[in-house]
Amino acid sequence: MRSMRWNGVFGILLASLAACSAEPAAETPRPALVVHAGGGVEAALSAYAGEIRAREESPLSFRVGGNLVRRNVDAGARVRRGEVLAVLDPGDFALQAQAAQAQLAAAEADLVRARGDRDRYAKLVGDQLISQSTYDAQEAAYKAAEGQARAARAQMDVMRNQEGYSQLRAPRDGVIASRQAEAGQVVAAGQTVFTLAADGGREVAIGLPENRIRDFSVGQPVMVELWNAPGQRLPGAIREIAPAADAQTRTYAARVDLVGDAAQQVELGQSARVYVQENGAKAALKLPLSAIQRSDDGKTAVWVVDPATGKVRLQPVRLGAYGEESVPVLDGVRASDWVVAAGGHLLREGQTVTPVDRNNKPIAMK
């Protein structure tokens, strides 16, 4: 009986030793979201945020200074050519016009007297009752009076113009884009009161980065996408590029002209995105930002899955300018490579993974 008990214990010990000497269980492959590096024409496009603006934007101001007593329009109002937009206090201008009128009347009276004197002196010199020099002096007095009358008439015209300048009128049809003054404010001559967006062409104002400014040129075709109409792209072309960069943003202001009927589909102030294919740009591959990793030596890299074994390896890559959701890959991977798009920080060199798509379905890589 005791022998049978010891035999059982010995069997249990042998089984335990056999279990300890066996190899450890194989590691379960970790699921990994994998993608191909995208490319093509779309990958060569760069997007720049912009705003719909009028091609002709005119700052409107009074040609004289004074107290703004009335403002007839506000921002967003549609105006017609010649419409009165604002009025200055005309009191001083009316008084100046009256003074100029009085000076003109006095100058014309002097001219009439000088003309009569000259005519009488002309008769007297013809009868040889006065000397020629006396007549010449009277002729000079007449010409001086004539000049004074012309100067007074010109001054009166100026004062009348000044009185008319107290009314700010729209130079053309359009929309008031902004207002910079209010009734009761004293404005100076040339101070902007309104900004008028004239009817006609519509453009997109964008800023181009200084490190790529040589990749753009006037006349280059682009595509414009409105924020409120995603997926619908309107044709356009770069109309102008500023010769110097902005001192604060360090970007070059550019205007994109909308081609054909595209200008009729936009409204002032709308947000837009301009897609530009730089001159000489190649169809670079692109990967999502989540696929980019850092190697031990601090270089950028991605995890590439071996289709034959399912094991991952860290592949160094050279990247372009980062976008909002993706980054172009200039060197290091091919379009046919399977790249881990998420969870790369949990992987190690040589680890086996189960490749899946975005719907968590296994992918046959062979």
Results as ranks from 00 to 15, higher is better:
residue 228 N to W: 12
residue 319 L to E: 08
residue 177 A to T: 03
residue 21 S to K: 13
residue 271 S to V: 04
residue 30 R to V: 03
residue 257 D to N: 12
residue 356 V to K: 03
residue 106 A to W: 10
residue 207 G to Q: 04
residue 87 V to F: 09
residue 192 T to Y: 10
residue 101 Q to F: 11
residue 11 G to K: 12
residue 226 L to Q: 04
residue 304 V to P: 00
residue 194 F to E: 00
residue 138 Q to S: 11
residue 294 R to W: 13
residue 212 R to S: 14
residue 251 T to G: 03
residue 246 D to T: 04
residue 95 L to S: 12
residue 365 M to I: 06
residue 140 A to L: 15
residue 88 L to K: 00
residue 246 D to V: 01
residue 97 A to K: 06
residue 357 D to K: 05
residue 350 G to Q: 07
residue 60 L to A: 01
residue 240 E to M: 09
residue 28 T to V: 11
residue 209 P to E: 07
residue 217 S to D: 13
residue 128 Q to I: 08
residue 78 R to L: 09
residue 223 M to N: 07
residue 302 V to T: 06
residue 358 R to A: 13
residue 101 Q to R: 14
residue 35 V to W: 03
residue 50 G to K: 00
residue 135 Y to W: 15
residue 181 A to W: 05
residue 71 R to S: 14
residue 124 L to F: 06
residue 362 P to N: 05
residue 255 R to K: 13
residue 225 E to Y: 08
residue 311 K to D: 02
residue 325 E to R: 14
residue 303 W to E: 01
residue 204 V to Y: 03
residue 364 A to S: 14
residue 130 I to L: 07
residue 148 Q to S: 14
residue 204 V to P: 00
residue 65 G to L: 03
residue 265 Q to W: 07
residue 332 G to V: 04
residue 267 E to W: 09
residue 141 A to V: 05
residue 114 A to L: 03
residue 30 R to H: 07
residue 120 R to G: 10
residue 269 G to S: 07
residue 344 G to A: 05
residue 187 V to N: 06
residue 26 A to E: 15
residue 257 D to W: 13
residue 135 Y to G: 01
residue 278 E to T: 07
residue 197 A to M: 06
residue 229 A to Y: 12
residue 173 D to K: 02
residue 365 M to V: 04
residue 237 A to E: 15
residue 237 A to Y: 12
residue 277 Q to F: 06
residue 192 T to G: 07
residue 144 A to C: 08
residue 192 T to R: 09
residue 222 V to W: 02
residue 93 F to H: 08
residue 333 V to A: 00
residue 84 V to R: 07
residue 106 A to R: 12
residue 120 R to K: 11
residue 151 A to P: 03
residue 325 E to W: 09
residue 222 V to K: 02
residue 149 A to I: 00
residue 318 R to D: 06
residue 300 T to I: 06
residue 340 V to N: 01
residue 86 A to Y: 00
residue 340 V to T: 04
residue 234 L to A: 07
residue 85 L to S: 00
residue 187 V to P: 00
residue 150 R to Q: 15
residue 134 T to P: 05
residue 177 A to Q: 05
residue 301 A to I: 02
residue 263 A to D: 04
